[in-house]
Amino acid sequence: MQKDSRRKEGLFRKWEDIRRYWYKFSRNSLSIIGLVVVCIILFAAIFAPYISPYPKSAGKFINFYEASQPPNSAHLCGTDVFGRDVLTRVFFGYRFSLMMGIVVLALVVPVGVALGLIAGYYRGSWLDTIIMRITDIFVAVPPLILALAVCSVLTPGIFHAMMAVSLMWWPWYTRMVYGIASSLKGEFFVQAAEVGGASRGHILFKEILPNCIAPIFTKMSLDMGWVILIGASLSFVGLGVQPPTPDLGSMVADGSKYLPDQWWIAVFPAFAIMLVVLAFNLLGDGIRDMLGAKGG
């Protein structure tokens, strides 16, 4: 009986927390727009085979009868020179863009954050020196340039592109978390845990890490946009996703040959890139507002 009421109380508090977070997030209407657009894009990408009007256009498909049609009721964004529906290909293109972003962040964030926590907590020791000097080396190389080099030396493709970008991206998380961790290291709550007998793991991941969550999530959302942009750039120069698989970058590249007469072939994919990057940036701002400060 008492246990049950306690459980209810706990659930009620959780619900209260969620409402407070939502209130903070929703104070800026732009962040809601960002969230909605991100959700729509995710939905479109995941269910692309079912909701896109001409799923066949995503593969090896040629239909010269409907080639180069401007936007009309049958093809909302027109068709390209092979008669493939541009809207369908944008939906499918989002799949690779988002996958690239998600895979890169999934590889980069745990590694970068863990190294940053360790280096920050052991600031001044040899561990700090080693980790941070290696970080400096990797920061010096621009991710896009390395990805270009890797993809042109090895076979071009999304896998190599993701690896190359990941290799260059983790240091930014390490640096950010290092800054926070090394300043929190001296805080009394860390000292209190230390002299109270808490383990190193507890201090790093339960005392320091929760205080880094807000900047990490904000940066992840912003980086999602950047990684997608790099993926699109690689495809634009032909080193990313290979035809006939649709990708926003290669679609812009192909379509640019037919500008300005058949503008829709390049403009809609380009607009799609802009939309996804913008949406993730707005979402990032919202997350920052939401996690900025607890309480109140």
């Binding site: 709550f189 860390v190 000292q191 209190a192 002299v195 808490a198 205080n211 607890k294």
Partner: peptide, 29 residues
């Protein structure tokens, strides 16, 4: 020894982790 000797710091604003609930703070020891 850490169980025997304990400390209360001057400023409770910085000696309690803002990212952890009272429950988490008290269950640690």
């Amino acid at each position: 020894l850490k169980k025997e000797i304990r400390i209360v710091f001057q400023d409770p604003g910085t000696s309690l982790n803002p990212a952890r609930s009272i429950r988490q703070i008290l269950e640690l020891p």
